[in-house]
Design a protein around this nucleic acid. Structure first.
Lengths: 221, 221
DNA sequence: GATACCATTTTGGGATACCAAATCGGTATC
DNA sequence: GATACCGATTTGGTATCCCAAAATGGTATC
């Protein structure tokens, strides 16, 4: 793999894994030495991550995107729009066998599965569901929204019950799609996203002091 | 303005203005000499334009994105979803005075206005309408869709009547938003986008020989 | 102690050199 | 005429150098 893709992937993982905190400054030279690449691939990676919304410009320099509660609310609106549209398209397909693959993916998680894996599968559910629609742009939109939500969801304080409830809601959505009931699928998905948003924003808002204590920049709603 | 933004802007204009044809190969060295910049800003511009979907990779090299009829259909679905959502949000706002600014923009076009300006205002209508929603992601989605549609709309064979009809439909949509009638605004906008898509795809499909004769790569639906 | 000022360092933007791989041209072979 | 082959050229990927602007840090001044 090329250095450029390498730097991009590793840097993205460090940002999403909160090894580099939201709001932290980045210098091209630091990244260069950190990953053993020269500035050319580093700059390419930075440009890509900027379009993903994971980093932004701070005057002349680079900054890891802060946790922005207002933005999280807007993303929730956005993803509801595109995810509901995608699931409606999918429910209207003749061949809806793709839902079984997603159901199997959900079922691959059990009580022994590490939290990190639950986290990943929870995002992949939405991405793969959007992929079934066959519309590249809806898929891209959902993937983009999930990327931007990723860090916040990781910071969210979630109990076991919340994970189980999300798992059940995911299965219920799949069942509606399997039946070809677009309205029910849309209704369940809307409710799922709204609930997810509420818990997320509430959790982060209540814990914003703790987040700031960890050195994370948090922008209020 | 920095060289990077300069190269990016000029190259984008050449691609959107069809001075560089769809499907054409691009080399970093040619761009370098064409715009009098070195490869560093050229590569930055290429990376940006790639995320806009105006250029893509062809193996190791760069290619101007072809006219893709299947993609145009998918974009139409995508933009209907996000534009309708945005206009519904806007219609539900208390302060909908922003529509007057857009109405004035439409009215700035008359019989003497050059075709190029009609083209630009036609796109800006949809972008500015999405902006009124206040949702950055819906706005970005519409802007992105418009950028990707831009060349195709420019190639479309449009008569005077089509321009006038679009103008009237735009005003009708604004009137519904002004009234706060979200359902009617959504219905009108949906019909407008569907009609726009049909005329666009039909026109390009019928003229695909002519397009290929001009050296433009056209991917069938 | 706060602040204005200046020398130093650091930083991102840009230019250029180098390399391996891919492409291109021409030639020999069938 | 088609094709396989090979050397020359071109190309994107990378590393490195230079520069002006911005950040930094120490110092003198009030």
């Amino acid at each position: 793999m090329s250095q450029m893709q390498n730097v991009e992937r590793q840097l993205r993982e460090m940002i999403l894994g909160l090894e580099i905190g939201p709001g932290e400054r980045l210098t091209e030279r630091w990244i260069e030495s950190r990953f053993g690449a020269s500035r050319t691939p580093v700059r390419a990676a930075l440009l890509r991550l900027e379009t993903e919304g994971l980093i932004g410009r701070d005057g002349r320099g680079w900054t890891v995107a802060p946790i922005n509660l207002a933005e999280l609310g807007q993303i929730a609106v956005y993803r509801e729009v595109v995810e509901v549209a995608a699931v409606r398209l999918t429910a209207a397909l003749e061949d809806r066998s793709g839902v079984e693959v997603i159901a199997a993916m959900l079922d691959s998680c059990d009580a022994d599965t590490p939290r990190e894996e639950w986290h990943r599968v929870g995002m992949d559910f939405h991405i793969e569901l959007a992929r079934l629609s066959g519309n590249e742009f809806l898929l891209r939109a959902v993937r983009d929204a999930m990327t931007r939500l990723s860090r916040a969801r990781w910071l969210e304080v979630r109990d076991e019950a919340a994970l189980g409830r999300a798992w059940a809601e995911h299965h219920a959505i799949l069942a509606a799609v399997r039946k070809g009931d677009a309205d029910e699928a849309a209704r369940l998905l809307s409710a799922h996203i709204a609930g997810s948003r509420d818990r997320l924003v509430t959790s982060l808002h209540e814990d914003r002091r703790g987040l700031r204590a960890r050195g994370f920049a948090v922008v209020a709603a």
